[in-house]
Design a binder for these strands. Structure first.
Length: 813
RNA sequence: GGGGGCGUAGCCCAACCGGCAGAGGCAGCGGACUUAAAAUCCGUACAGUGUGGGUUCGAAUCCCACCGCCCCUACCA
């Protein structure tokens, strides 16, 4: 075919559509169940069905697909499923704003996205698709909930939530707007309210979740999770509160207890009401109310001045026996430790600030080095020698921590303790579009779980999800009113739904058998595929989804459902693709790139390759529309090379061609192993350029072989182009079921290299030497160089540094 | 306040275990093709690696300090 004809014949969009059809007909992406091959479960985080795939989806999914394709060509049976995280707020908001039912909105989005996913040219096995808002799926959320409940891992308690007093409803975090913390719908200031909520006891697994020895995850994610779990060692000490009883505090510094000159409770602490002196009541109550209005985020603002009020009550320091005043202050959080602290102003920055403001004694009990009894100008938080601490004076503070703890323990006033920052997972959402919590409240029997055989508790389709101010299911009498499964009497259903992170905590298991109805997944399929070998997704999920799914798997293990400890063995975090202006893409910034316009113009392969080429995958980066051209040229050139074929034989070095081929195979293979798609594509471009250059100058047979290998290497990146090219050179359908090429190490090495000759670190000459030249020979050859000889004249060579294949350096004096 | 990442050509990015700063691409420039342009093809210039020190025969790479940008996290007792 002539070049002109090729140019005319290159219609990537049409070509891609043709192959997509063919692939579907031939079913080449149906999951290979041949257990003779090693398994590879590749997983990319499932998308939320927002309506259209955006560039971010492409950036996350297509490299993941490339890697899965590569593994397949490497001889693995690969399972690479996809699904939709279909419950959640946007669907409900669309319903409220536009009157479309969430189900309809979600399903039509999914339908749309399915088509776009196919267009992407991925090898997703759509037979394994999971849609989490499907009762077939969420039934198992409920089933798990019951199992968790049986094991005591699901429990109900009062927990603070954001509450809009005007709409009379709880709000999700993203519905609370701005630093003023206003309700998104009516601009009313949001308050904290204690409501009955369901929680999962993830804290039971805190210690095990700190063990990362069984997974190969990015250091960064491990650190994030470790910090999030926040294990601290210390002691729980008991302070007697006058007229109330003992109150426990947690401290990491029991050594400083002799310096505890006051005591602080969180405004929410249950004891506050009972201990407040009558003359203080008004002040205390107003402070508590003010604190309640503040969000946790505002309260966590450490730069804010430390506020608080005296309750009029006193506690007894268990070490000194002194009476110390009890304050309430919002810098003490109910959610951490016991919600009360012993305040040691001399050795804690926050307590120091508070004590100064309230004129409380600041007593040094750990002497800083060189301290001579002068008042501290700031809190000293380091180690030192004990002072003002009775019998412990003179002891190093580290040792005093243990000794004081056991001393108090002997007197029944304390014990060593470990506290975690991690809190239990609050799963209740006062929302319609989620999984109903399978619980029934009966006046007589109390809290009754829905019997397993009654699952799923269906989400009623005709619910009133308009903004009426109450949890939508609460208004649905038909849903809410039930017979108690235990006594048959009148009862009410729980009307909250589950957090959508529940859905994504175990979806990787459901993929294995999405229609299996005897359990969350078919154990036989589980044996064949679990656990996930390679997971890819954004690092923003480090302390949410990625922690929850680890927790979930450990519970599943304890339920006997799986026999391993970790859900995903290997994780890779891709970066974020930014808008052309270098900012995060967002509609309000107007910098959103629509993949469709590029797909329509260049085809999917170009977009895929461009996104992989733009830079290291974990780095992300700004979108550059101009850069796409280069990749488009590359693929078109590659295509035309295959279609036109060999030109003529005119004497280029066929061995060099072969060496380059093997070098390319090695480079691309190693880069794919390490998720370095950008340099792999650069290597393919280089090879393509070379193939083009020698197309009419080398032995035809060997050129064709080199081209064949090139196409195979290209296949995971540009599946459509490679398929077309494969067909053009007479390859058997499909290129994607071929074996990945292997390289011959002996052919990778170049034959002759340019050895750099330096004198005292400065480059003086380059000489051609055989690759395997010995040091002595290299030295000899280098000395023969005129330029080098000139430099060495009159000097003696003190040292020769020889790096094979690189340089030879004469150190001369 | 704490933790992490990144600064290399006009731009996106390469550079293994320290060894000639350049693989690939964009844009630029020159040529071929064209009546002309686009497209295409061929060919090319461009930085001494954010700044300042240090280690070394030799530093983009290792160490120290600083500057800039980004991300995460934050009163955790």
């Amino acid at each position: 075919m002539s070049e002109a004809k090729v140019r005319q014949s290159y219609r990537p969009v049409e070509m891609e559509r043709r192959w997509q059809r063919r692939w579907a007909e031939a079913g080449i992406y149906e999951t290979d169940q041949d257990t003779a091959k090693p398994k590879h479960y590749a997983l990319t985080m499932l998308p939320y069905p927002s309506g259209d795939l955006h560039v971010g989806h492409w950036y996350a999914m297509t490299p993941s697909d490339t890697r899965a394709r590569y593994m397949r060509m490497r001889g693995h049976r690969v399972f690479f499923p996809i699904g939709f995280d279909a419950f959640g707020l946007p669907a409900e908001n669309a319903a409220i704003k536009r009157g479309i039912h969430p189900y309809k909105w979600t399903m039509s989005n999914i339908e749309n996205m399915r088509g776009q996913l196919r267009q992407m040219g991925t090898m997703f096995d759509f037979d394994a698709e999971v849609v989490t808002c499907d009762p077939e799926y969420y039934k198992w959320n409920q089933w798990f909930f019951l199992k968790f409940y049986e094991k005591g891992l699901a429990y109900r308690k009062q927990a603070p939530v954001d509450w809009c007093p005007s709409c009379n409803t709880t709000l999700a975090r993203e519905q609370v707007v701005g630093p003023e913390r206003l309700c998104e719908r009516c601009d009313t200031p949001v308050v904290k309210k204690n409501l009955w909520q369901w929680l999962f006891k993830i804290t039971d697994y805190a210690e095990e979740l700190l063990d990362f020895s069984k997974i190969d995850w990015p250091e960064r994610v491990e650190t994030l999770q470790r910090n999030w779990i926040g294990r601290s060692e210390g002691a729980e000490l008991v302070f007697e509160v006058e007229g109330y009883g003992p109150v426990e505090v947690f401290t990491t510094r029991p050594d400083t207890v002799f310096g505890a000159t006051f005591f602080v409770m969180s405004p929410e602490h249950p004891a506050v009401e009972k201990i407040t002196a009558p003359e203080r009541e008004a002040e205390v109550r107003s402070y508590v109310e003010r604190a309640a209005r503040m969000s946790e985020i505002d309260r966590a603002d450490a730069t804010r001045e430390k506020t608080g009020v005296f309750t009029g009550a006193h506690a007894v320091n268990p070490a000194t026996g002194e009476r110390i005043p009890i304050y309430i202050a919002d810098y003490v959080l109910m959610g951490y430790g016991t919600g009360a602290i012993m305040a040691v102003p001399a050795h804690d920055e926050r307590d120091f600030e508070f004590a100064r403001k309230h004129g409380i004694e600041i007593r040094t009990v750990v002497a800083p080095p060189g301290w001579e009894g002068e008042p501290l100008q700031e809190a000293y938080v380091g180690e030192g020698t004990m002072v003002n601490s009775g019998r412990f004076d003179g002891m190093p503070s580290g040792r005093a921590r243990e000794e004081i703890t056991s001393w108090l323990q002997e007197r029944g006033r304390g014990r060593p303790a470990v506290t975690y920052r991690l809190r239990d997972w609050l799963i209740s959402r006062q929302r319609y579009w989620g999984t109903p919590i399978p619980i029934i409240y009966c006046e007589k029997c109390g809290t009754v779980p829905v019997p397993e055989e009654d699952l799923p508790v269906l989400l009623p389709e005709d619910a009133e999800f308009m903004p009426t101010g109450v949890s939508p299911l609460k208004l649905n009498e038909e849903f809410r009113n039930v017979e108690c499964p235990r006594c048959g009497g009148p009862a009410e259903r729980e009307t909250d739904t589950m957090d959508t992170f529940v859905d994504s905590s175990w979806y990787q298991y459901r993929y294995l058998s999405p229609h299996y109805d005897e359990g969350p997944f078919d154990p036989e399929a589980g044996d064949r595929w679990l656990p996930v070998d390679q997971y890819t997704g954004g690092v923003e999920h480090a302390t949410m989804h990625l922690l929850y799914t680890r927790f979930w798997t450990k519970v599943m293990r304890d339920l006997g459902l799986v026999d391993f400890d970790e859900p995903m063995l290997r994780l890779f975090n891709q970066g974020v693709i930014l808008g052309p202006d270098g900012n995060r893409m967002s509609k309000s910034r107007g910098n959103v790139v629509t993949p469709q316009e590029y797909v329509d113009r260049y085809g999917s392969d170009v977009l895929r390759c461009y996104l992989m080429f733009i830079g290291p995958w974990d780095q992300g980066g700004p979108w550059d529309g101009k850069g796409v051209e280069g990749v488009a040229r590359f693929l078109r050139r590659a295509y035309s090379m295959a279609v036109e074929g060999f030109a003529s034989d005119a004497g280029a070095d066929p061995d060099e061609l072969e060496r380059r081929t093997h070098r390319t195979i090695k480079k691309v293979t190693q880069d794919l192993e390490n998720f370095r798609f950008n340099t792999a594509i650069a290597a393919l471009m280089e090879q393509s350029n070379y193939l083009m250059a020698v197309r009419n100058r080398v032995d035809e047979e060997r050129w064709s072989e080199a081209l064949r290998q090139f196409i195979l290497l290209l296949a995971p990146f540009a599946p459509h182009h490679a398929e077309e090219m494969w067909a053009a050179i007479g390859g058997k359908f499909s290129v994607h079921t071929q074996n990945w090429p292997e390289w011959d190490e002996s052919l990778v090495a170049v034959e002759e290299i340019e050895l750099v000759v330096q004198v005292n670190g400065k480059v003086r000459d380059q000489i051609k030497v055989p690759t395997d030249v010995s040091e002595a020979a290299a030295k000899e050859l280098a000395m023969q160089s005129e330029k080098v000889a000139r430099q060495l004249e009159g000097r003696s060579v003190r040292k020769v540094i020889y790096v094979p294949g690189r340089i030879i350096n004469f150190v001369a004096g």
